[in-house]
Amino acid sequence: MISEKLLNGALIAGLLLVVLHAHLTDAPFTITLATKVAILAVAGVGLNIALGLGGLVSLGHAAFFGIGGYAMGILASHAQSYVPLMQSPVLIEGTKSMPVIWLVALLASALAALLIGALSLRTSGVYFIMITLAFAQMFYYFAISWPAYGGEDGLSIYVRNGFPGLNTLDPIQYFLVCFGVLVLALLVSFRLRTSPFGLALNAARQSTARVQAIGQNPFRLRLTAFVISGAITGLAGALFADLNRFVSPTMFSWQTSGEIMVFVILGGVGRVMGPLAGAALFILLEHLLGGVSDYWHIYLGALLLGVVLFARGGLVGVLTEGRSGDD
């Protein structure tokens, strides 16, 4: 039985130690995996704001993840080919600068979240799950069949985008960039939770009527949370595309939505560090089980099932409460 604070510290320290060890022993692929964990954790942190704080079960966060990815892909591919993105009425050029790309990714995915949220939040419960899934699917099919940016082939970027003062091609430096973003996202998520907005949102999750009674508009609260959530996941998408130097419609697929949700639930819904714990566990499992059998998805599925049925509260919940009782 350990306190959640201690566990959070241990998780962060653990990730850093793994990377440090990999750096010293010259194991760049381990650093790549750790970077992937950090990025997917950012995506999970984004979803966790909608899911844990707002109680909004979105099965369509792949839409934002993909939009962030394509923001990076489209801007960088234009910079790569020296073809402006748009010539009239104003000249817009591509860019290979990470901060600019991040900004665009944040804005574009926030805008998409605003539109999808405004429509989907008219409903709740099971409707909401299905509608968010369907909208993400719409982006997926569009990305596959729209020929301008590679369709199903996706877009390859030959050199990773730049961050002022860093060599992002060096695995450890890119890891630190992503780790920095993760820490920022965690801080945002943590502050949000204790802010008046977060408290009102939490109250809206438990009782819509109570929030209305004190003069707050629950729809607006939820929409704001959904937009923040989508924007953070979109940022993760841009980072993920930069990690692979590649973006494709699979980032939009419903499996991606499912996996982001799995990180959050594996780690523990609503726990600040849940997404990091979940992403780390998922990547570790994928890495280990993939070597056991061609049919490793069976084991993964069985494990997930076990977590849902018998380990409520996810990894963080189990470790902090010291019991794995089934209620």
Binding site: A27, P28, F29, T30, T32, L33, K36, G154, F240, N244, R245, F246, S248, T250, M251, G290, D294
Partner: peptide
């Protein structure tokens, strides 16, 4: 031999792994 699950992102990471590790 590694399985890419028909996902391009996974294939990229496997290629990194094979080249780097």
């Amino acid at each position: 031999i590694e399985d890419d699950q028909r996902k391009p992102e996974i294939a990229v990471q496997l290629a990194d792994k094979m080249i780097q590790s």
